[in-house]
């Protein structure tokens, strides 16, 4: 369950403040596939960054499964990102000196998945998205 209440994110540009997201409120129940649509520059990426705890809102609250993540400290935010969020960036953001398999394995490292399971799971995921040719030992 995701509940957003009057979420605002402002950026400073010199003496000016620009609101990328302003007073957004939304509710997404569990097991729902949702899509956010809008014009370029309307604040979609900023909103997703706030929901994924990659950025801190200027005001408003975000509740995930009943927990207000905007009040989280650094360690709780790390756990939240590690365990609750899967983020696919606009420009991929792969680690350049790692293979495709290692890039997929990397988040599992932080969760503590076993070595054998990590590899099997990563290979399975690459297979499912049609990147089996990228699997190299």
């Amino acid at each position: 369950m995701l509940k957003v209440n009057k979420l605002t994110k402002e950026f400073k540009s010199g003496d000016y403040k620009i609101a990328a997201v302003k007073d957004i409120s939304l509710y997404i129940p569990n097991s729902i596939f949702s899509t956010i649509m809008g014009r370029s520059g309307s604040g979609k990426s900023t909103l997703l960054s706030l929901l994924g705890a990659l950025d801190k809102p200027t005001s408003g609250t975000i509740e995930v499964d009943g927990q207000n993540i905007t009040s989280f400290g650094e360690s709780k935010l790390i756990k939240y990102r590690r365990n609750k969020i899967g983020f696919i960036f606009q420009n991929y953001n792969l680690i350049p000196n790692l293979t495709a398999l290692e890039n997929v394995i990397l988040p599992m490292e932080f969760v503590g998945v076993g070595l054998k399971n990590k590899k099997e799971r990563a290979e399975d995921l690459l297979l499912r998205v049609g990147l089996s040719k990228k699997i190299r030992p």
């Binding site: 994924g52 990659l54 360690s75 790390i78 590690r82 969020i85 983020f87 953001n93 680690i95």
Partner: peptide
């Protein structure tokens, strides 16, 4: 790279 590592749950 640091930003990505943090985004996927790596600690400081």
């Amino acid at each position: 790279e640091i930003g990505v590592l943090k985004a996927i749950g790596s600690s400081n």
